[in-house]
């Protein structure tokens, strides 16, 4: 803690590039608690990489709640802020691990968190080799990306070939990293658990819309209340801790064969769907956690 710093004098920097429903709730939660917030539109800033802590914190505040909707924008800005001594939620290390599904799976698996069976490949041949082990159907996900974008079910050899050929034609090196997951036999829903620090704040089921297999709320998935069972709490906390902790959304599937499996940990939590299912003040919990970061 820096000299003279307390929750009354701190100014949280809410760094964003789009005002979503969540950003408005976070701002309101801070105002309700009389915590000062500096809204910083990352798109309008330029940052001198040689500047010092005082200059950086003057512009961005300290601590900073990183809320950029653009993953790489947020990640790179967090790198700068952290290197100058600003405390950022979530940290660079957490964002790096959570922003890439392959890194997330490796991190979770190493910590003993249950994850779906997943293989990586780097060419069409490699994908077919992976499918020999995983079988059809399998799920192909981009390593970086959200909201279910470009996720595909590999149903058979022919569709797989077409999908990989299409991805090869897209001029994006990250799309040539193939993250292939065994299809998980599960109810048509997943579970979103929001973890703030060492507390499970709320959980919701997310049901796929009728015309889609993906459960992302951004794709029209519907949220319903989900009880926080001891098993769910344990898995979510373990997953959050494994990636480094902070404000996180742990997404789990209920495998009929293996129980809860964590398939994703999100580092810029969207909680609008979840908030509609609970009375818990999620934004308030997040703001209090960020304000409390200066004490830790």
């Amino acid at each position: 803690m820096r000299i003279g710093e307390s929750e009354m004098t701190i100014e949280i920097g809410l760094v964003y590039d789009r005002i979503r429903w969540e950003e408005k709730q976070l701002l309101k939660a801070a105002q309700d608690r009389e915590i000062k917030v500096k809204m910083v539109d990352s798109r309008k800033e330029s940052v001198n990489l040689l500047s010092n802590y005082e200059e950086i914190s003057e512009t961005f505040g300290d601590p900073v709640l990183q809320r950029c909707i653009s993953y790489f924008r947020g990640l790179h800005l967090t790198a700068i802020l952290e290197s100058k001594g600003v405390r950022v939620v979530n940290s660079f290390d957490v964002s790096l691990k959570c922003g890439n599904k392959l890194f997330t799976t490796l991190t979770l698996s190493k910590a003993g968190v249950p994850v779906p069976e997943t293989m990586a490949a780097f060419t069409m041949d490699g994908v077919f080799k992976a499918l020999n082990d995983l079988g059809y159907p399998a799920v192909l996900k981009p390593v970086v990306g959200s909201w279910g974008r470009l996720m595909a079910i590999l149903k058979d050899k022919e569709t797989t070939q077409a999908i990989i050929e299409l991805r090869e034609k897209i001029n994006n090196a990250l799309l040539q990293i193939y993250y292939v997951q065994k299809w998980v036999d599960r109810p048509p829903r997943d579970i979103r658990v929001v973890v703030v620090g060492d507390e499970v704040v709320a959980a919701s089921y997310r049901y796929s819309p009728v015309d889609d297999w993906r459960t992302n709320v951004a794709r029209g998935g519907k949220s319903e209340a989900c009880p926080i069972t001891p098993e769910l709490e344990e898995v979510a906390l373990k997953a959050a801790e494994a990636v480094g902790g902070g404000v996180l959304a742990v997404d789990c599937m209920e495998s009929r064969e293996k129980g809860l499996l964590v398939h994703e940990v999100n580092n810029t939590v969207e909680f609008r769907g979840l908030a509609s299912t609970t009375n818990v003040d999620i934004a308030g919990k997040i703001i209090e956690y960020v304000a409390g970061v200066v004490k830790r």
Binding site: F72, R73, W147, N267
Partner: peptide, 11 residues
């Protein structure tokens, strides 16, 4: 006009 959704947008 609002910024168009980028491929790295999301959570």
């Amino acid at each position: 006009p609002a910024e168009v959704e980028g491929e790295d947008w999301g959570e």
